[in-house]
Amino acid sequence: MQFLSFDFTTFSASNHKLIQYIVVALIIGLVAVILSRILQKLMKVYFERSSRVLKVDPTRYKFLRNAVSFVIFMLAVTLIFYTIPGLRTIGITLFAGAGIFAAIIGFASQEAFSNIVSGIFIVIFKPFRVGDNIKIGDLHQGTVEDITLRHTIINNFENRRIIIPNTVISGQTIINSTIEDEKVCTFIELGISYDADLEKAIEILRDEAEKHPYCIDNRNQEDKEKGIPKVVVRVLGFGDSAVNLRAYAWSANSGEGFEMKCDIFESLKKRFNAQGIEIPYPHRTLVFKNQPPHSIP
C-alpha cells in the first residue's frame, strides 16, 4: 500500500507540472496571437496611409506585416521551449542549427535586405511620391513612376525607365521639385555685347519672359506695392566678352519652366537680332610663330 501510494503521488505531481506547462504554453501562444493581431492592424493602417501619400499600392507591403507576425510567433516558440525544461535541450539544438542557417541566408541576401530596409525608410520618411519630379545625385532625373521595397522606378525625359536600388537612393542627395510647392523659379541667363544697350536688353528680356503663357506672378502684395516687377532681371557680372544677365521667371512646375526657358531663348534671339543687340560669341586669333620670311620679289 505504501508503494502504491508513493507512485500515485509522483504521478499526480508530474501531471500537475504537465498541466502547468500546457497552461503556460497556451498563455504564451494566446499573447503572441493577440500581439500579432494588434501589430498587424496598426501596420495596416500606417502602410495604407503612407501608400496614399506615396501613391503606391499598399498590398506590396503586406509581407512586412506577415514578417512581423512570423517574428512574434518565433519568439513565442522560443519562450515556450525555454520555459519547459524537457524541451529546453531540444530547443537549444534546433535554434543553434537554425541560427547558423539564418546567418548563411543573411550573408547571402545582405544587399537585398539593405534594399528592403531602405524601402521601409522611404515609406516612413516619404522623401518623394509617385508622380514627383526628382533628381538623384548628378546623374538621374525624371518622374517617379513606382516605389517598391527593393527599388524605385524613374521615368526620365527620354521616356526611359531607370530602376534604382533603394540603397543607392538612400546614399544620394535627392532634389524633389514637387514634394511641397511645385512652383519653380527658372533662371534665364545670357550675355550681351559690351556695346549693346543694356537697358533695352533688360527690357526685352523682361517683356519676353512676362508675356510667356507659363510665366506666373509670384509676388505678394508688399512686392507689388514696392513696384517689384513680375520678372526680375539682374546684371550678374562682366565676362570676358559679355555682360551677363539673369532673369528670374516663375512657373507652375519644373516641366513648364523648362519649356518656358526654351521658348524665351528662341524669342530673345529674334528680338535681339531685330533690335541690333549682339549676343557675343568667342573669337580666336591664331598666331603662327617661326614662319619663314616671305621672299621679296
Rank of each mutant, 00 (worst) to 15 (best):
Q2K: 11
L4P: 00
L4Q: 14
S12R: 12
A13W: 11
N15P: 06
L18Q: 12
L18S: 14
Y21V: 08
I22E: 08
L35E: 02
I38Y: 07
I38T: 06
M43I: 04
V45H: 03
Y46I: 04
D57P: 00
F63N: 05
R65P: 01
A67Q: 07
S69Y: 03
I72E: 08
M74E: 13
M74V: 15
L75Y: 11
L75V: 15
T78Q: 07
F81E: 10
P85C: 10
R88L: 06
R88K: 08
I90N: 12
I92T: 15
A98R: 08
I100P: 00
G106N: 03
Q110I: 10
K126M: 11
R129Y: 06
V130M: 08
G131P: 09
I134P: 00
K135E: 14
L139Q: 09
Q141M: 13
T143A: 05
V144W: 00
E145G: 05
D146V: 05
T148N: 03
R150I: 08
R150E: 08
T152L: 02
N155W: 01
F157A: 14
R160F: 13
I162Q: 02
T167W: 03
V168D: 10
I169F: 01
S170R: 03
T173K: 09
I174P: 01
N176Y: 09
N176G: 09
E182S: 13
V184G: 03
C185H: 11
L190S: 07
G191W: 04
I192C: 02
I192Y: 00
Y194V: 03
L198H: 06
L198C: 05
K200L: 15
I202P: 00
I202V: 13
I202H: 00
E203W: 10
I204M: 12
I204F: 02
D207Y: 06
K211G: 01
P213W: 00
P213Y: 02
N218P: 04
K226I: 06
P229L: 13
K230C: 04
K230T: 11
V231I: 05
V231D: 02
V232T: 11
V233E: 12
G237E: 09
G237P: 03
F238G: 05
V243M: 06
W250T: 08
A252M: 03
N253V: 09
S254C: 03
G255F: 13
G257N: 03
E259T: 02
M260C: 05
D263M: 07
L268I: 04
K269I: 12
K269R: 15
R271L: 07
N273Y: 12
N273F: 07
Q275L: 13
Q275I: 14
Q275S: 14
L286N: 08
V287P: 02
N290V: 12
P292C: 13
P293K: 14
